Computed example of a mutant assay.
Amino acid sequence: MNVLFLCTGNSCRSILAEATFNHIAPKGWHAMSAGSKPTGQVHPRSLALLEREGISTEGLFSKSWENLPETPDIVITVCGNADKEACPVYLGSALRTHWGVADPAKATGTEEEINAAFERAYGILRARIEFFFESSIEELIKSKSPSLQRRLDNIGVLRF
């Protein structure tokens, strides 16, 4: 199963999600990330955070959704809702859901406050990804259950 984490810039949230998902995913699952308007670089704080967490950053780069190496089965948008950020809409036939997270790249303040914004975004994404694998998603996909969409959507509103 291929999962696409999608946002606008593909520099922070979708990158954090891609790397974290691939780090904890069981065999047969693969994540990728992309942006509708990629910045062209991964935010250095995202890379530093992943490295501190022991998650590989090899091969991570900011890329467009127009050049995906594989067709996604599930598309998860991670753009935040609170800041009225425009979130891209994937037009393929994949199952789509939204797991909004505030953009840490827009954080201001002290070094500690900015780092805390990245930690919050990572923590939310990691918890949701872990819950994704703990919530019988594989069985729902195999059975083509109509409750799959609801389960995916519910993960996106969980507060951690």
Rank of each mutant, 00 (worst) to 15 (best):
A82H: 14
G35Q: 08
N154A: 11
A102W: 00
T110F: 05
D103A: 07
S147Y: 14
A48V: 12
H23T: 05
A25H: 02
M1I: 11
S11R: 04
N115R: 11
S14K: 02
R126Q: 15
H23D: 13
A94W: 00
H43Y: 08
E112F: 03
F5G: 00
E111I: 09
F5T: 06
V75K: 03
F118R: 12
S56C: 00
L148W: 06
F118E: 13
R13T: 08
E119S: 13
F118D: 11
L60D: 08
F118Q: 13
V101G: 00
W65E: 10
E51Q: 14
S36V: 04
I74T: 04
A127K: 13
I76N: 07
K106R: 15
C7T: 03
T110G: 04
V42G: 01
A17H: 08
E113S: 10
I141D: 08
V3I: 13
A127G: 12
D103K: 03
V157G: 08
H43C: 01
E51D: 13
A31I: 02
S36T: 04
D73Q: 11
V157H: 12
L140V: 12
E134A: 12
D153S: 11
G80K: 07
V42I: 15
W99M: 02
S136T: 11
G123R: 14
E134I: 04
L148P: 08
A82F: 15
V78C: 06
I124H: 01
N154V: 05
E113H: 10
S145D: 15
F5Q: 09
I15D: 06
K84L: 15
L49R: 02
A117L: 05
I55S: 10
A31M: 00
F5M: 04
I155A: 09
S143K: 14
S145E: 08
D73L: 00
V89N: 07
S33C: 05
D103H: 07
V157K: 15
L158M: 15
E139A: 15
E51M: 04
R150C: 08
T110C: 02
Q41D: 13
G35V: 10
A105W: 09
G35C: 10
P69Y: 11
N2F: 02
R126S: 12
V78Y: 04
T110D: 08
F132D: 08
I155Y: 07
L6W: 00
I129V: 14
Y90V: 01
E85R: 09
S147G: 05
L6D: 01
G59C: 05
H43L: 03
C87H: 02
E113D: 07
V75S: 06
P26L: 03
L60P: 00
G123T: 15
E139Y: 13
M1W: 05
R150Q: 14
R52V: 04
Q41V: 12
L91K: 15
N154F: 09
M32K: 00
L152N: 00
E18C: 02
F5N: 00
R128P: 05
D103S: 07
G59M: 06
T57D: 00
K37Q: 15
I74Q: 08
S62Q: 07
L158D: 01
T77Q: 03
